[in-house]
Design a binder for these strands. Sequence first.
DNA 1: CAAATATAGTTATGTCAATTAACTATTAAT
DNA 2: ATTAATAGTTAATTGACATAACTATATTTG
Lengths: 152, 152
Amino acid sequence: MAKPSPLADMPPPLDSALDDLIGYAIRRAQLKLFQNLIGRLAEHDLRPAQFSALAIIEQNPGLMQTDLARALAIEPPQVVPLLNKLESRALAVRLRCKPDKRSYGIFLSKSGETLLKTLKDIAAQSDLDATAALDSEERATLLRLLKKVYQD
Amino acid sequence: MAKPSPLADMPPPLDSALDDLIGYAIRRAQLKLFQNLIGRLAEHDLRPAQFSALAIIEQNPGLMQTDLARALAIEPPQVVPLLNKLESRALAVRLRCKPDKRSYGIFLSKSGETLLKTLKDIAAQSDLDATAALDSEERATLLRLLKKVYQD
DNA sequence: CAAATATAGTTATGTCAATTAACTATTAAT
DNA sequence: ATTAATAGTTAATTGACATAACTATATTTG
């Protein structure tokens, strides 16, 4: 059962004249998407950053914690408990496999790969669910425009 | 001078296979917009929530703190320091002006109104700046689609 | 009317995330 | 060799935020 999500419901705001700002609209839409995803991932006792980490590790097997930190836009110390959690659940492993013995290579375990498949479906479903007001053409347009914004 | 903004730069991520999720794209785009706005508002020693509060008060003069909390999607205790700050800078005032003497009516001061005009320009400029990769038709489309998502 | 209950705002407390600083071990540079 | 830099970790600080408790009014109702 989905947790009651402390930040969950965004109440209908009073008229605030911010309505024509993309920054305002995107914040509200992002919150909706994020809350939806948080709820669904919670059933697997995972947070969005952990899901992102799994996806990044899959695409970049053997990467170092430093790389993961940069990719997640978090600081190295935050990577430690995150990876500890993934490792304790046997979803990922740290291996001393580099010429440089200070660093670890990070890999998904078999069950990490399996779970990630499920999580990707969940994320895709969450996306669809939270954007149910759009048809698939609009969704494609939205994605294209968002990429244009953040890739700039 | 703009503060070096602790969260500022989102580094180019490794390929992570999250690229086709709207939730992922919107988070990254939102962060870009938000960081841009934070930087610009910092020059006026204001945070986005304080700017939003000013805009909401302008549109709803005399509203109660409870209403403001709901509109900002924050808890009532958080309104206290926020309003204290606005009041200490003489941008807004709490007035016992209701039949119910437990509550305050909140209003902008003259200088609050004046500053808000400036801030709206800043926010609009921030929007344009952070979405410089889009032409104005694309911007309109993006805004329309985002509204559709969060108003749903 | 009196007592009980509810509400607006505030204060106090606890929790948790996230940044920073400092420590260990390895590696690279002079 | 000594020094400096880097990967990862631990520890300490800060800050956001929620929850609970307090005050003063207001409402309800017995």
